[in-house]
Amino acid sequence: MTQVNQSQLRPDGAGLNQATGSGPLKATSGQLEYAAEVVSCHQLNAGTYWLQIYCPAVALSCQPGQFVNLSCSQFLRRPFGVAQVDRAAGIIAIGIQLKGQGSADLAASRPGRALSVLGPLGQGFTLPQPGTEQLSSGSGQPPLLLAAGGGSGLFPLLFALHEARLQGCRTAAVLGFRSRDRVVLADSFRAVCSDGLTLATDDGSLGVRGTVATALAQLELLPGEPEGQNVARAGQAVTVIACGPKPMLAAAASWSRSRQYPCQVSLEERMACGFGLCRTCACQITREGRTEMLRVCYEGPVFNAEEVFPE
């Protein structure tokens, strides 16, 4: 039986202040598949679960935006973005939205269940580096990481914001949900957002009425902010990351482009292997004016927004 301290990683943001380490760590070996064990699984709301897995090797080397491919009751594995990492405890956490049989099976996991984990997979987000960007922008302000997410895409953003915060960036997030009762992890996100969390619901039952796109458009006119003041302070470097449904990614990309903020989007595609062998996960990317079919699992899932949504 593996010894894990279950209290060390919780979706409510506890753990942020613990020594979870930061900065890129190289994978320790060429291994890709790990025998892992479920630490806990609990329900966040009607269709959403939080699964913690003891898998020290992946916890140690995983970067924000990377994902794991998990064995389940079905023939193929299921890919999930890593949502939280506790390097000291060797635990990773993922958020699961129920879709079909694979997600349901994983969500029904009991502590101690053996899982085969492939990971960490793919290329994650490139987070702003406080030192250098502060100098180059000349503002004296640490850079701002703004995360936009919806659906199952919000989970990996939590890890990215957490990591950026540890590295000394300022952080903010805009998250979209269908309605108030669908909202998950708000407190966890609030704990890693130094510059505010904006929630949007389709029916207006909480926060901004509308989508993430609506909320982004209103971002500079938030209550409490002087009219016309941008989300960023004068001269502050802003990096946008987005994960969620394609229309939301497109909205985040165009919002960023009009403000000349660099934007990275994380894509999803049906995949077989998840580690670059089969090319079933292809997405259309425009690089240097040419269309290429790149692998979401290998060259992605994170791409520069202008490569996915060229002008």
Partner: peptide, 20 residues
């Protein structure tokens, strides 16, 4: 060859379809 547009794979009982 750029191959086909996605989705390029579908899971089946004990197997998968591919159209790379």
């Amino acid at each position: 060859r750029l191959g086909n547009l996605p989705p390029r794979t579908a899971e089946t009982a004990s197997g998968l379809l591919n159209s790379v």
